[in-house]
Amino acid sequence: MGLANIEKLVIKYKNGTTSLEEESILRNYFTGESVAAHLQEYVPMFTYFTFIKKESFNKNVQLKIEKPRNKNRKFLTVAASIVLLLTSVFFIKKENDRYQAKKQFAQVTKGLKLLSIQLKKGEIAIANVYSNQNN
């Protein structure tokens, strides 16, 4: 392609009106060997465009990612529920112990009361016997 044509295309290119085909003509020209001196500034541009297009995404696309943030939150919920469970077990046990102690205390009190009633009865009976003898 003649220089005159290239110059025309360059003007169109600057105005943003070139087609993809025309741009590929320019790309070939400016990445080629002999570029006119007054168009040198386009060499780095087109060299850059071709160069940067070779850059690629080198990692594998992960489709089953769990964000570490979410993982942490999950772990925290599990930990929190375990703590809650343990504390409630602890309190239930404590409450139960208290209940048992109360029950035992009541039984003992009841027993002692009964004993004291019987003792009183005996005391009264003995007192009666004494007073009868004295009379």
Partner: peptide, 21 residues
């Protein structure tokens, strides 16, 4: 609007390169 933006971008880059040269 796309063509205008593209033209501006190309001209900015091109002018800066010309200045440097």
């Amino acid at each position: 609007a796309v063509r205008v933006a593209l033209s501006r971008a190309r001209k900015t880059v091109r002018n800066a390169l010309t200045k440097q040269q």
